[in-house]
């Protein structure tokens, strides 16, 4: 884990909200009032089950889906307030690595063309220098530069993911959203790609939002963690603190269900029952109360505020004090 280089956050997300309006007029509350900061040179993990809105949150920050509300102050500018033309100039500072390494590369383009497209976006001139740059990028992600004339189908999942990372890095971004970059890979390859991301982050001083549903991956890679459930932030804080002392019942449940390589360890927690409720009709009050082992009547009354409980640790639970 890297030490923070600067205390002012590179990215401040405030009240990010994304509603999808369906054809039948019903609204999907995908992301609801999400706020967090990412300091320069650090990695923040965004975790939650499928359907928690973590991917939508990540894409909204890049405006790959247009956010419905909120702000994202990136290096002093609210990028949600930019018009599409202004946004184009900012895009090269914010990049994304996708979950599926198969559909994230155009099957009809050779590797040098895929990376070249990113170089074009930066206005990189054509010629020998460009080929050198492509070779350099491939080497950076641990691929032999000779592979540049090949097509994506000639590579394995892990190699494709490396190409996707090279494409994102080609524009020399400050900030990368890694959207579950290893969850589609074989376990044996996951560690390699994670190590690559960690190394690159340190080497290039990248700031990263790492989206995952696997808590152990986040613990390994992230300085801070944001736990989402049904579009809302349940708990956020420094990884070490959240992992050692989870304060939200949801975080506790998630940590309890995470596999630990210790066969003698007893399960201390009842795993979560049932499925995540529909974001079309989220529960009143605290969205987690329908599956919460410690829910009380009051939980249905008010949406719990995200309370600051020391350090950078925040939790959204009305009972965090008593439990």
């Amino acid at each position: 884990m890297t030490q923070p280089m600067d205390e002012t956050p590179l990215l401040s997300v405030r009240g990010l909200t994304k509603h999808f309006v369906g054809r039948n007029g019903r609204t999907v509350h995908a992301v609801e009032d999400v706020s967090f900061d990412i300091r320069r040179g650090t990695t923040v993990g965004l975790v939650g089950e499928s359907g928690s809105g973590k991917t939508t949150a990540g894409r909204s920050i890049l405006r790959l889906v247009e956010p419905s509300g909120g702000q994202a102050i990136f290096d002093g500018t609210d990028i949600f307030a930019l018009n599409p033309r202004e946004m184009k100039d900012w895009r090269k500072r914010l990049q994304i690595v996708f979950q599926d390494p198969y559909s994230s590369l155009n099957p009809r383009m050779r590797i040098d063309a895929i990376i070249g497209e990113a170089l074009d976006a930066r206005g990189y001139p054509r010629g020998a220098k460009r080929r050198e740059r492509i070779a350099e990028l491939l080497t950076l992600v641990g691929l032999p530069p000779e592979y540049s004339r090949r097509f994506p189908h000639e590579f394995s999942g892990g190699q494709r993911q490396r190409i996707g990372i090279a494409r994102a890095l080609a524009v020399e971004p400050d900030f990368i959203v890694a959207d579950e970059p290893v969850s589609a890979l074989d376990v044996s390859v996951q560690a390699q790609v994670l190590n690559l991301l960690g190394d690159l982050q340190q080497k290039l001083g990248l700031t990263m939002l790492f989206i995952a549903h696997d808590l152990s991956v986040v613990e390994y890679l992230c300085d801070e963690v944001v736990v989402m459930y049904l579009g809302r932030v349940m708990e956020r804080g420094p990884s070490r603190q959240v992992y050692a002392q989870p304060r939200h019942p949801y975080t506790k449940a998630l940590l309890a269900t995470a596999p630990v390589p210790d066969p003698t360890r007893k399960r201390t927690h009842v795993p979560l029952q049932g499925d995540i409720p529909s974001p079309i009709n989220p529960p009143s009050g605290c969205v987690f109360r329908t599956r919460c082992p410690v829910a009380i009547d009051a939980c249905a009354q008010t949406i719990p505020p995200v309370d600051h409980i020391g350090g950078n640790h925040h939790v959204a639970c009305i009972r965090h004090g008593e439990l």
Binding site: R59, R91, K92, Q95, S104, A121, V171
Partner: peptide
């Protein structure tokens, strides 16, 4: 989406 993220 990647192309859009690059501003193509």
């Amino acid at each position: 989406e990647a192309a859009r993220a690059l501003g193509v």
